[in-house]
Write a protein that binds this DNA or RNA. Structure first.
Length: 423
DNA sequence: TCTGGGGTCCTAGGACCC
DNA sequence: TCTGGGGTCCTAGGACCC
């Protein structure tokens, strides 16, 4: 049995979040920057209309910013994360089966809704989300996830649709007309490399792709590509996930606000990222078998390039911050080289297992249990009193390697001191 | 001066085993 | 001259997503 699947996608999510608490920004071009205020990662429609591309470094569009008074923001993930929760909670009022796919998108299972009512129900959802959270969303509905994503693109692009396109059990010729109007690079699952390959072989739009030979697709695009093509044909291949499976890898990394050369600074940063990663690990009640540390220079600079990483197999799966920091420091010692301008470091935890399956060995004794308790207590204090209330000494206090973020909006919804003021 | 961070899945190839 | 076959596990690298 296959029912209708909807994708609900927030329009220009980060830019919309900035706008919710700052009505003066309505109608103004807005861009949001990556960590370090480096490049553009989100744009309002007005900014898109000015021809500002995604992923462009800020310095390359300074002239546009000045000329059109573009409002520029550093990314404010605390705000976006909280707004995301509000949107998702609203969706859960309408269906128990909400699969949160990313910070600004969710698949919603509509098996229980009569097909004739789908479109008006989607409009109702759209209006409610806007009213309750201030965030505009667009909704695509179809028989498969890939077709729902495709419908979603049109719901955004075509103003007459008012933010909703439903092609569930639509006549094949109507679906074909949408497929024909979709370039291969706009298909979910087709990226830059596959686009190039497909163009070279004369496949330009999604309709042509549905008629391609399965063996050819399998050979050139692996089973993933074949799944995409099947889904375009209306055959569901990509599962609907009710509750997200635990993460199989957890990464924490960031580029520095300035070049770093000293091993002590690298160690502080690595300890900091190890702490972040292990908190995420405990949050999903998991332990890790493998910890890897990596560091690299800035690939855009012409200084001596160096990148290296080290994979550390932990003697037993753990979720204890202090243990992980210890191993991470040894890892840094192994790969750190003198005389290098470091630009980015990070930590990855993998080989992840549920913590309840981990047995403490006879030799661990009380000491280890105590350490595990300390990690949990630190988490609790930081949750209650704000992140960073208690930190591990290794992380340093000065942290002058920190990321730049000079144009950040207040944490309107999560920080007592930064709530919007009533005049 | 200035170019993100955090994930997923698949495949090929090497090491090793019997 | 002739030099197996099948399996597992691991890692690196490449593709994709937002």
């Amino acid at each position: 049995m296959t029912g209708p699947i909807a994708i609900v996608d927030c329009n220009n999510f980060y830019a919309s979040c900035e706008r919710v608490f700052n009505p003066k920004l309505v109608g103004k071009p807005i861009v949001v920057l990556s960590n370090n205020d480096g490049m553009i990662i989100a744009r309002s429609n007005e900014a898109k209309a000015l021809g500002i591309p995604m992923g462009e470094p800020l310095f390359k569009i300074e002239h546009l910013v000045r000329q059109y008074d573009v409002k520029v923001f550093s990314s404010n993930y605390t705000l976006y994360g909280d707004m995301s929760h509000r949107v998702m909670a609203t969706l859960e009022q309408f269906s128990p089966d909400v699969e949160i796919y990313s910070i600004d998108e969710a698949f919603v299972n509509f098996s229980g809704t009569p097909p004739l009512k789908l479109t008006s129900y989607a409009h109702e959802i759209r209006n409610t989300v806007k009213k309750w959270t201030g965030i505009p969303v667009s909704i695509g509905i179809a028989n498969t996830k890939t077709l729902a994503k495709l419908a979603n693109k049109f719901s955004k692009k075509v103003p007459e649709l008012n933010g909703v396109l439903n092609i569930f059990e639509e006549k094949q010729e109507i679906i074909d007309s949408y497929l024909e109007k979709t370039n291969v690079e706009d298909i979910w699952g087709v990226g830059r490399q596959y686009t190039k390959m497909l163009y070279e072989r004369g496949y330009y739009n999604a309709l042509q792709l549905t008629k391609a030979d399965d063996k050819f697709i399998r050979r050139k695009m692996t089973v993933m590509g074949l799944r995409t093509v099947m889904e375009l044909r209306g055959i569901p291949c990509i599962k609907y996930e009710y509750s997200p499976p635990s993460k199989k890898a957890i990464i924490s990394s960031r580029s520095f606000g300035k070049s770093v050369t000293e091993i002590e600074q690298v160690k502080e940063a690595v300890a900091y990222f190890t702490n972040i990663a292990s908190q995420k690990l405990r949050h999903q009640k998991s332990s890790a078998n493998i910890l890897s540390v990596f560091l690299r220079t800035n690939p855009f600079k012409e200084t001596t390039q160096y990148h290296n990483g080290v994979l550390i197999h932990l003697p037993a799966p753990t979720d204890i911050t202090s243990e992980m920091i210890e191993y991470a420091m040894k890892g840094v010692d192994q790969i750190f080289k003198q005389g290098i301008l470091y630009y980015k470091v990070g930590v990855m935890l993998s080989g992840i297992v549920p913590t309840d399956s981990v047995q403490f060995t006879l030799f661990d004794g009380k000491n280890r249990a105590k350490k595990a308790d300390i990690s949990k207590i630190v988490d609790m204090i930081n949750m209650e009193h704000g992140a960073g209330t208690v930190v591990y000494a290794r992380q340093g206090v000065k942290r002058d390697w920190r990321t730049r973020s000079e144009k950040k909006s207040p944490r309107y919804t999560t920080n007592w001191d930064e709530l919007p003021k009533v005049k």
